[in-house]
Amino acid sequence: MQAQEANAALGVLEERLDGAGSRAERVAAFEAAYRHVAQWRYEVAVEGRWQRPGASAEDVRTPLAPGSGYRVTPDNWLPDRDTPAFKMLKKLEQVGLDRLAGETSLQNRVTLRDGRRVNGNTLGLQPGRYRFTGEVIEGSVEVAMTYAEAGDREVLRQAAFEALAELEEARAGAGTDPQDPEQRQTFVDAAYFLVQGPEFQRGSDAIMRTFIAAAHTRVFDAAPVLPQAIDLDGMVRGQDGFSQVMHEQLRIAKSPAAQPGADVGAERPAVHSPHRREGLGR
């Protein structure tokens, strides 16, 4: 389902970018594709798919409330701790503790491509609680994060579209190569800006990952396989840590033309669902 929408967003990019003649038009094209994915995620929620008990479809288009955040520490009281999700969260919890280094709060600062710095999310410690009852677990401490303020998140989203427009200009000129260090870093920057700029109470992770898959396929003519949980990973690790993970783990998906039974006449590889390939689909 995510792969289908990524291909649809790729179609929006192709339609808007093939006739674009300015940086502003290219930026607008990427924003239009992002909005297309956001609308798709809302429609999925309205249909009742990917909804947790008690959740509302309207959460998927309701802006984040001030002070909203996410708990990184998993539910330690769960009987089954031998799951990929639990292990991933415990690993990120330790990353957060290492970064905090005894402090109770750490402000992530995001460096934009023009050198400006913007406040991203805040990482911090809070009293441990049972997730559903709110009951305090005596002596327990949790790692949590709070999203950036709305104005900063808007700046970060626009910076992401601008970085992608920069790559599109290179593609239209001398060309792009996903293995080129500078161009790869530009894409990594765009991804991080989006990670730091979520917009809605629910669904921003799926919106961001699906859009990034389509954008990578457009600017590099190659579908990506994204690292797992890059949204939460970027919130906890910070900009340098996120860049390191992306450079180490971001891969190029094999073209369907190289697979048995594929349509060898296809002009470009279909966008593969990185979430399904990597076993992540929240």
Rank of each mutant, 00 (worst) to 15 (best):
A191P: 09
R268Q: 13
E25W: 09
F187L: 15
D82L: 03
R184K: 15
D231P: 00
V155Q: 13
R237G: 05
R268A: 14
T186F: 09
I230D: 00
A150Y: 07
P127G: 12
V225G: 04
A65G: 02
D59W: 10
L97R: 05
L125M: 14
E47R: 13
S273D: 15
A190L: 05
M145L: 15
E31R: 15
A150T: 04
D177C: 07
A215F: 14
V188N: 12
A229K: 06
A6Q: 03
F211N: 00
E149G: 08
Q94M: 10
K87V: 10
L226R: 06
R35K: 14
G124I: 01
L78P: 00
V60L: 11
A8E: 01
Q126M: 05
E149A: 11
F30S: 10
S243E: 11
E168T: 13
Q2Y: 12
R16E: 08
R81D: 00
T210F: 06
V95R: 03
G67S: 02
E58G: 09
A8W: 00
Q94D: 04
M1F: 13
V245R: 14
R16N: 12
F132P: 00
F211P: 01
R113N: 10
V44H: 07
D221K: 12
P224G: 06
A213F: 06
V195K: 02
G115F: 09
R184N: 12
Q158N: 11
D221G: 11
P66T: 02
Q2R: 15
